[in-house]
């Protein structure tokens, strides 16, 4: 139990947390724009992972050289991003859009339904048992010395996640679409009355959230190396927790929440024991929410009317 061991757990927490955050963004963006907790998001990512596995096999990436491997990974991320983004938009059009003015519970229950449908598709796609995702990256340590381990896999997570998050925050803050997204999330009718096509903005939000999930699905496969048709549930739950912890609807909140969950998970696994991790994560969630019900970066008060 040294300082080095602690730092190692922090590194694991950082990469794990970044991955959780990427998934959490999908929950928080959709919630921010239409107030829906999209319970199918975790299972969407599971389907992305299924596609990633199929593509790895089809392209023969497991036996490719280093350059082809990196290009292949980039291709996987783009393909799974497009796939999950498009699928998310289709689900919105078919399932959630007709329920836009219905009571909140109707789309919520529908989202749970979509989650089960996705799980069944995943079951048909990759079968009932867990499948191993090939190790595409060498496990050489990138840090000098013996102690701390930081491999290509860890680097991959950060190299993908950090630019995606920066890109997203830039998009939301500075672009025309981003401004329209913020306007729709605050008052869809007022946004329509200045000429914003609300349905298109919602579709774009579903696409971006889904595409980030698609990227996460590839990283998940490469990083965890095991995928299964039920992986969406637990991973979705952790990511959703991260989004609530950070303040649901808040994009920086999802990132902070994801990192907090990542650190708590790795530290409690290392110092308390793996089997307690779930209990500890959710105990911390409850404590934080008791004192800050709006989440770490959520809005505290309603604004002046």
């Amino acid at each position: 139990m040294s300082v080095q061991f602690f730092l190692q757990q922090c590194l694991i927490g950082l990469t794990n947390g970044a991955l959780v955050a990427l998934v959490a963004l999908g929950y928080t963006m959709v919630y921010g724009i239409i107030g829906l907790i999209n319970f199918a998001h975790g299972d969407l990512i599971m389907l992305g992972a299924c596609l990633a596995l199929s593509l790895v096999t089809a392209l023969g990436l497991a036996t490719a050289g280093p350059t082809a491997t990196w290009l292949g990974i980039a291709l996987l991320i783009v393909a799974c991003g497009l796939f999950c983004g498009t699928l998310n938009v289709c689900v919105d059009r078919i399932v959630y859009k007709p329920l836009r003015n219905a009571p909140k519970l109707a789309p919520l229950v529908s989202a749970i339904g979509v989650s089960f449908i996705f799980m069944n598709i995943g079951l048909f796609w990759i079968g009932p048992s867990d499948r191993s995702f090939p190790e595409l990256l060498p496990s050489t340590n990138l840090l000098p010395g013996e102690g701390l381990q930081f491999t290509w896999k860890d680097l991959l997570v950060l190299v993908v996640v950090v630019p995606l998050m920066l890109g997203l925050s830039l998009l939301v803050k500075t672009t025309r679409l981003g401004r329209a997204m913020r306007a729709v999330s605050q008052d869809p009718t007022a946004a329509a009355l200045v000429g914003v096509d609300v349905d298109r903005v919602i579709a774009a939000t579903f696409f971006i959230g889904g595409a980030l999930g698609g990227a996460a699905s590839v990283i998940y496969g490469l990083y965890i190396n095991t995928i299964g048709f039920q992986m969406g549930f637990q991973n979705g739950l952790y990511a959703f927790t991260a989004a609530v912890l950070g303040g649901i609807g808040s994009i920086p909140g999802a990132v902070v929440g994801g990192l907090v969950i990542g650190f708590v998970r790795s530290l409690s696994s290392a110092y308390v024991g793996e089997r307690w991790t779930g209990a500890i994560v959710f105990a911390i969630l409850i404590v934080i929410l008791v004192f800050r019900p709006e989440g770490l970066l959520g809005r505290r008060t309603k604004e002046k009317v």
Binding site: R179, R182, Q186, D187, A191, L193, K304
Partner: peptide, 9 residues
């Protein structure tokens, strides 16, 4: 009615 400006913009 009610102005409906965007409060967090």
């Amino acid at each position: 009615e009610g102005r409906r400006i965007f409060p967090r913009l």
